[in-house]
């Protein structure tokens, strides 16, 4: 997918400092970054480089220490806790390394979760869930609980959950980190398809160079600085 040049993520002088045992640890130091709408970007870097922190900030589940962070037209750093929750529901689709499905719910119910935060009717929600599960090739596994699915299948359910509410950005934190090679390939293929055919903006954190190749842009973070 080619981008239209319009930035969906605009980061200026972003700093994130944690305090551990009264010691300040600078995780991100003066990050400037623009991510274009429709891009598929990979954030790479060694452990502790700050790539997951940057992803969490973009996704609005963490707050910056300083700097501005505009995502999907909103200055996320200025939003209250409650406003950020509503903003995430509207704009962000999450894919986690360990899938993070609710173990007591079926694949169908897991995918429906983000839609419970919308005003869609039950019938509309069902339709969307079935479409999303169809897209990831799991129409025949809708009633299965996560325990009854393989790791690759669980991650595909998680991808269906990430895209079902049609978010502005999909953020993926090591989406292939817990998968075997074959399943990892399938997941990357799926993300590429989402980006190319549906125009979804995807920001993926990975330490796997092979996984990063699926992205159209690769960026490296080292000691809290983009290189």
């Amino acid at each position: 997918m080619t981008t239209n040049g319009k930035s969906i993520v605009e980061i200026r002088n972003l700093r994130k400092v944690y305090t551990r045992d009264r010691q300040e640890v600078v995780v991100l130091d003066g990050i400037n970054l623009d991510i274009a709408e429709g891009a598929f970007e990979a954030l790479m870097g060694p452990s502790g480089s700050g790539k997951s922190t940057l992803l969490n900030l973009i996704a609005g589940i963490d707050a910056p220490t300083a700097g501005t962070l505009r995502v999907a037209g909103e200055d996320v750093s200025q939003l209250s806790e409650g406003q950020r929750a509503a903003w995430r529901a509207r704009h962000i689709g999450f894919i986690f390394q360990f899938y993070n499905l609710l173990p007591v719910l079926s694949a169908e119910e897991n995918v429906e979760m983000p839609l419970l935060l919308t005003s869609l009717s039950g019938a509309e929600r069902k339709k969307r869930v079935h479409t999303a599960l169809g897209l990831v090739g799991l129409s025949d596994r809708m009633d299965h609980t996560p325990k009854q699915l393989s790791g690759g299948q669980q991650q595909r359910v998680a991808i269906a959950r990430a895209l079902v509410a049609d978010p502005t950005i999909i953020v993926a934190d090591e989406p292939t980190g817990d998968l075997d090679r074959k399943s990892a390939e399938e997941v990357l293929q799926l993300l590429t398809t989402l980006n190319k055919t549906m125009g979804k903006t995807i920001v993926m954190v990975t330490h796997d160079a092979h996984a990063a190749e699926a992205a159209t842009v690769q960026r490296r973070l080292d000691k809290g600085v983009l290189t």
Partner: peptide
Amino acid sequence: VREIGTLRALGFRR
């Protein structure tokens, strides 16, 4: 804990 974190990330409020 992970389930709660996931729910919150998806946009469910405190």
